[in-house]
Computed example of a mutant assay.
Amino acid sequence: MDEMKRKMDDFDLELSTIVGLEELKVQLRKWTKGTIMDEKRRAICVDLGRRKLPHMAFLGNPGTGKTTVARILGKMLSSIGILSSDKVIEVQRTDLVGQYVGETGPKTRKKIREAKGGILFVDEAYRLAPITSGQHTEYGVEALEEIMSAMEDDDLLVIFAGYSEPMKRVFSSNEGFCRRVACYFQFDNFSCRELAEMLLIKMSKQGKRSRMSGFKLGSCCSVESVASVIERRTSEKVRNRINGSLVDHMLNNAKDNLDLRLDFEASGDELFTITLPDLETGLDQLARLDLD
C-alpha cells in the first residue's frame, strides 16, 4: 500500500473515533489530503516553494473536541514530516501573561520553546485581546505579538481556539493575524443523540484509572433512552455551554446517586450497574448549576 495512502487512512481512522462533527470532518479530510499530496509532490522534487505551516483557528464552544482534533492533527503532521514531533502544548492566558512589567515576554517565549517541533494550542485565545483597556490588556497583546513572531518558525504550528464571536477580536487586534492563520475550522455543538453516543462509548472503554472503571450501564440505557433523558433534563443553553463535558458530569453524578441509593447489603452486579434513573438524577444535579 502506498505510504501516503496509509497515512491518510490512519488519519481517517482517528477521526472516525470522534462522535459527530461531520461537516468539520469533511473539511479536515479535504485539507489533510491536500497537505499529504503536496508532500508527495515535493518527494519527487517538484518545487512548490517554501513550505508554510498551516496555522489555524478552531472556533466553537467548550467541549466540542477542539483539543482532541489538535492531537490527531499533531500525529498526522508529524507522520508526514511537516512537524518533527506530535506533541501538543496547551496554554491559556495565565500561562503566557505576567502580573508585572517584563514578565509576559519571558513566560510566553518559554511556552513557545516548549512547543517547538509540535503544536502550540492557545485555548480561549480571545482573552489575549480583551474588550477593556489597561495595563493587563497590554500584557495580553504583548503575548499575542510574541506568538505571532514565533509563527514564522518552520517547526511550530499554532492553533488559536475559542468561542466564535469573541475570537473576532483576536482577528482584528493584530494586522498580521489573518496573513499568518491559513485555516479556520468551525466546531458545532453536539446534539442530544451524539452526547448519548459519547456516553455509551465512554462506558464501554473505561481505563483502569477512570472513576467509572468496572461500572456498566443498565439494560435500559440505550442510545435512544439516554438521548431522551438528556433532552428532557437539560436545556439547550446548558448543553451548548459544556457539550462533551456534560457526559463526564452526568456519569460522575450518576455514580454518586448509585452509591447513595444502595444499602450496605448490596452485592454483585447491583454494586456496579448505573441505571437510567441514576443518569436522570445526575442530570438534575447538573441542571441546578448556575452556568450564567
Score class of each variant (00 low, 15 high):
Thr234Tyr: 09
His249Asp: 05
Arg232Pro: 00
Lys216Met: 08
Ala227Pro: 06
Leu251Val: 04
Gly244Asn: 09
Ile242Tyr: 14
Cys220Lys: 15
Val226Phe: 06
Ser228Asp: 12
His249Trp: 11
Ser235Gly: 14
Asn240Tyr: 01
Lys216Cys: 12
Glu236Pro: 00
Ser225Trp: 01
Leu251Glu: 10
Val226Met: 03
Leu246Ala: 04
Arg232Phe: 07
Ile230Met: 14
Lys216Gln: 09
Leu246His: 04
Asn243Ser: 05
His249Arg: 13
Glu236His: 04
Lys216Val: 13
Glu231Asp: 11
Cys221Lys: 06
Asn252Thr: 05
Ser222Leu: 08
Leu251Phe: 10
Ser225Glu: 14
Asn253Met: 13
Lys237Ser: 08
Glu231Trp: 03
Ser219Tyr: 02
Leu217Pro: 00
Ser228Asn: 05
Lys237Gln: 13
Arg241Cys: 06
Asn243Arg: 01
Ser222Glu: 07
Asn253Phe: 12
Lys237Ala: 11
Leu217Lys: 01
Glu224Asn: 14
Asp248Tyr: 10
Val226Cys: 06
Ile242Val: 15
Arg233Val: 00
Leu217Phe: 07
Arg239Pro: 00
Gly244Arg: 02
Glu231Met: 07
Asn240Ala: 08
Ser235Gln: 05
Arg241Asp: 12
Arg239Gln: 11
Glu236Trp: 01
Lys237Arg: 15
Asn240Gln: 14
Met250Glu: 10
Asn240Pro: 01
Cys220Pro: 02
Asn243Asp: 09
Ser225Phe: 09
Asp248Trp: 14
Arg232Ile: 00
Thr234Phe: 03
Gly244Gln: 01
Glu224Tyr: 00
Thr234Met: 11
Val223Cys: 10
Gly244Val: 02
His249Phe: 15
Val223Asp: 09
Val226Ile: 15
Arg241Pro: 00
Ala227His: 04
